[in-house]
Amino acid sequence: MARKKQSFKKQLEQRARKLVVSANPRSVVSEQFRTLRSNITFSAVDKELKTILVTSALPGDGKSTVSANLATLFAQDGKRVLFIDADMRKPTVQYTFSLTNAAGLSSVLTQQRLAGEVIRESEISPNLHILTSGPIPPNPAELLGSRSMTLLMNEMAQQYDLIVFDAPSVLSVTDAQILANKVDGTLLVVNTGVTEKDNVDKAKELLGNAKARILGAVMNNFKLDNDHYYYQYYGTEE
């Protein structure tokens, strides 16, 4: 019983670290996420951003943490937000929000379930709704590039103010490039001091080839002099 309690406590701690804007809203990291939200909002002066893709060059750069906190912040700001786990290879959103993943995006795209049946309201905010990845399919890239995906995005855009996608890393599979071509803007997460510049350049090149609108780069684990870690945003020039 003691081990179970310790395991549950560890899960809660891990969840809190991932959703820092909810667990510790006054922290330095949360403040930087709010700055990121503001910068994204300012970048949408000429064109409304209804769909945002968050990806990275390589796995482990922190794109899932960034996308989850960003979606949560926009919801806290009053927007009706749908957060979609489009990483149908190594999904994590169900863990971050303590949800089951028996059905989700893959179920909708293969027409086994309706979107309204599997989208769930987050306990964190009534404005935040979650669509987990669903069972891992054999053909994630094909599903993301399908007509069903386009129809789903169009349908959800009518119901939500903002849709945030957590996508696989760019250099691992083609999924992010496929989605980047469909969304209004893309954020590239870079793990400072870990991700090599050549990989970042290659990821940016691939997104450019997909005709993605790159909003900017998020520097994850950027270290300040006072030993606080936070997320720094660098916008791109049009």
Rank of each mutant, 00 (worst) to 15 (best):
A2M: 15
K5M: 12
K5W: 11
Q6C: 09
K10E: 12
A16P: 12
R17M: 12
V21R: 09
N24W: 13
P25C: 13
R26P: 09
S27Q: 11
V28I: 13
V29E: 11
Q32G: 12
R34S: 08
R34N: 09
S38V: 10
T41K: 14
S43T: 13
A44P: 11
K47M: 15
E48Q: 15
L49A: 11
K50A: 08
I52L: 08
S56A: 03
L58N: 15
G60N: 06
D61W: 07
S64R: 04
S64A: 06
S67T: 04
A71W: 01
A75Q: 01
Q76L: 09
G78A: 07
G78R: 05
G78T: 05
R80I: 05
R80Q: 09
V81A: 03
F83W: 01
F83L: 08
A86G: 05
M88R: 03
M88W: 03
T92I: 05
V93C: 08
T96P: 12
T96I: 15
S98N: 14
N101R: 09
L109F: 13
L109M: 13
T110E: 15
T110A: 13
Q111W: 14
Q111K: 15
L114S: 15
A115M: 14
E117C: 10
E117G: 10
R120Q: 14
R120W: 06
R120G: 07
S122K: 07
E123I: 10
I124Q: 07
P126K: 06
P126M: 01
N127Y: 05
N127L: 06
N127F: 04
I130K: 02
I136Y: 12
I136S: 14
P137N: 11
P137A: 10
N139C: 09
A141D: 05
L143F: 06
L143T: 05
S146L: 04
S148V: 00
S148L: 00
M149K: 02
L152W: 05
M153H: 06
N154L: 13
Q158I: 06
Q159L: 12
Q159T: 08
Q159Y: 04
Y160G: 05
D161R: 12
I163Q: 03
V164F: 03
F165T: 02
A167N: 02
V170C: 04
L171S: 04
T174S: 13
D175Y: 09
K182I: 14
V183G: 03
D184L: 11
D184G: 14
L188A: 04
V189I: 09
V190K: 03
N191H: 07
N191S: 05
T192Q: 06
T192N: 06
G193Y: 01
E196D: 06
N199Q: 05
D201I: 12
K202H: 10
A203I: 10
A203Q: 11
K204I: 08
G208E: 13
A210D: 07
K211Q: 09
K211F: 06
A212M: 04
A212Q: 03
G216W: 01
G216R: 01
M219I: 00
N221Y: 00
N221T: 00
H228K: 14
Y231Q: 09
Q232C: 03
Q232M: 08
Y233V: 11
G235M: 09
T236S: 13
E237Q: 13
E238G: 15
